[in-house]
Design a protein around this nucleic acid. Structure first.
Length: 492
RNA sequence: GAGCCAGUAGCUCAGUCGGUAGAGCAUCGGACUUUUAAUCCGGUGGUCGAGGGUUCGAGUCCCUCCUGGCUCACCA
């Protein structure tokens, strides 16, 4: 910033003056702590004042000053580190007259290192009886107001670092996010899945139908696409002989932004050879209920006021059953293209007229039933036309062996038995090209891979952000992504 | 991309009918040895998102634009 506000100029000048006056090192990196606040509280939190009076152990702690109550010759501050928040007591008689003068000039937001023994105040709050301290990092910018915190959502997203400093619940959400992902990794690893990494930059953006982001490699003079899904690469690995693989990573889709969509989002995809979609339903309900227990200690969650039990087993319903039973659609509408078309126009579903019956069935399901599926529920038997990578059902070739998982009205996972017939796969790709869906060209190398033989398998994608939203009761995907995409722009 | 709503001090917010821009917190100076949004006294701080228009006069009314939120569309 070229012209810092008076407040910031004032702080910079103040720091210069403090350094001169108290002979301080400029932004030092010499303080070392030996105790986290969480540990300190765990050691002493339950002991009473008399017991603590006998504890002479000096701990070195560090953190950011979040609140202060200063008096002439003694003061209290609250400071926080990554593990918690603690009160510290500064007494002129203890730290000395000069250091106390320095202390009184510290600001909320400054990072301080301090050492002292535990004690309990008159009100019974565990605190550090400070023997000495160092100004570790000067904060030039004032923090948001202590009582209301940071309310402005734009600032919260653009300056997440400030949001994290002042909003404990935001920190908690992102810690939970990390634990969820760790629990998933552990679950997969324990079951013999191999975590792999496949290209984020692809010459042919396959595996889904979203619009890709385009980029360019200069040295190769080659256009590339940010991946919209890792699917086709993961299945190449099945051809290569890995039988259980997974990847947790970003996908990029050049589509709209909403409370449920961010242009880059995190997906776990996994593939299991010698398994089918039925196996994956059991696997999924077990995994997600397991993760909920690991991270939250329960399978019963409350999402936006609605109680949902993630305990297995989960309900199952075909797409048509859901449209009828949940969406209130008359069964014959789903069996006749003309009736389906007229239903769509009445229901306000946009149609071009070129849709197949399967396209219409899916559109009707999504319009009428999707957001009512509190679940958890597996929706099965998707139309073949909307599932170009799925294996057709053995009894009814109009549908495929696929399911989507719905919880709280949202699609959380999509899975199917994989199509491993290269001839059928080629014709589905060609059909996509004809219908101008997908990448616009056949991924010949993927077909070639299938021609070598891919073992029968099932695969699944789980939207990690949405799962985290569910388990952290977050209404918007931006609440579970540290730095959600916003228009380029700076705050004044 | 469309509709609706919002933008005032570093932060959280008032601002009536168009008539001299306010409060609390933060910050600065002073008092204060057990506070919990400490308290008390005094002070600093504003391109009212940007630009244009109407008017004697605009934070307030009108237009355009910017940014964000929500809903819808696309998508997962």
């Amino acid at each position: 910033m070229e012209d810092p506000s008076p407040l910031i100029r004032q702080r910079i000048e103040k720091y210069e003056q403090l350094k001169r006056e108290f002979n301080l090192v400029h932004f030092p990196n010499t303080f070392r702590k030996d105790t986290d606040i969480e540990t300190f509280i765990a050691l002493y939190g339950t002991r009473d004042a008399e017991e603590l009076a006998g504890v002479k152990t000096v701990h070195r702690l560090a953190g950011r000053i979040m609140a202060s109550r200063k008096f002439g010759k003694a003061s209290f501050i609250h400071f926080q580190d990554s593990t918690g928040r603690l009160q510290a007591f500064f007494e002129m008689a203890k730290v000395g007259e000069r250091p106390y003068e320095l202390f009184k000039k510290l600001d909320i937001g400054d990072i301080i290192g301090l050492w002292g023994a535990p004690f309990k105040t008159k009100t019974g709050e565990l605190s550090v009886y400070v023997e000495g301290f160092e100004l570790v990092t000067k904060s030039y910018r004032p923090l948001p107001e202590k009582w209301h915190g940071l309310r402005d959502v734009e600032t919260r997203y653009r300056q997440r670092y400030v949001d994290l400093i002042v909003s404990p619940e935001v920190r908690r959400t992102f810690v939970t996010r990390s634990r969820i992902i760790s629990a998933i990794r552990a679950y997969m690893d324990e079951r013999g899945f191999l975590e792999v990494e496949t290209p984020m930059m692809q010459a042919i953006p396959g595996g889904a139908t979203a619009k890709p982001f385009r980029t360019h490699h200069n040295a190769l003079d080659m256009d590339l696409y940010m991946r919209i899904a890792p699917e086709l690469y993961l299945k190449r690995l099945l051809v290569g002989g890995f039988e259980k693989v997974y990847e947790i990573n970003r996908n990029f889709r050049n589509e709209g932004i909403s409370t449920r969509h961010n242009p880059e989002f995190t997906m776990m995809e996994f593939y299991h050879a010698y398994a089918d979609h039925e196996d994956l339903m059991r696997f999924t309900e077990d995994m997600i209920s397991h993760v909920a227990r690991e991270v939250l200690g329960t399978t019963v969650i409350t999402y936006q006021g609605q109680e949902i039990d993630l305990g297995a087993p989960w309900a199952r319903m075909t797409l048509k059953e859901a449209a009828c039973a949940v969406g209130g659609v008359a069964p014959e509408v789903l069996e006749d293209r003309a009736k389906a078309l007229s239903f769509c126009s009445k229901a306000g579903i946009e149609v071009s007229g070129g849709e197949s019956l399967g396209d219409l069935q899916l559109a009707i399901f999504e319009k009428t039933a999707e957001d009512k599926l509190v679940g958890p529920v597996f929706i099965t038997s998707y139309p073949r036309e909307v599932s170009p990578l799925s294996r057709p059902n053995g009894n009814d070739p109009s549908v495929v062996d696929r399911f989507e998982l719905y919880i709280a009205g949202r699609e959380i996972a999509n899975a199917f038995s994989e199509l491993n017939d290269p001839v059928d796969q080629r014709s589905r790709f060609e059909e996509q090209v004809r219908r101008k869906e997908g990448p616009g060209e056949v991924d010949e190398d993927y077909i070639r891979a299938l021609e070598y033989g891919m073992p029968p398998a099932a695969g699944e994608g789980i939207g990690i952000d949405r799962l985290v939203m569910l388990l952290t009761d977050s209404p918007s995907i931006r609440d579970v992504i540290l730095f959600p995409l916003l228009r380029k722009g700076d705050l004044p």
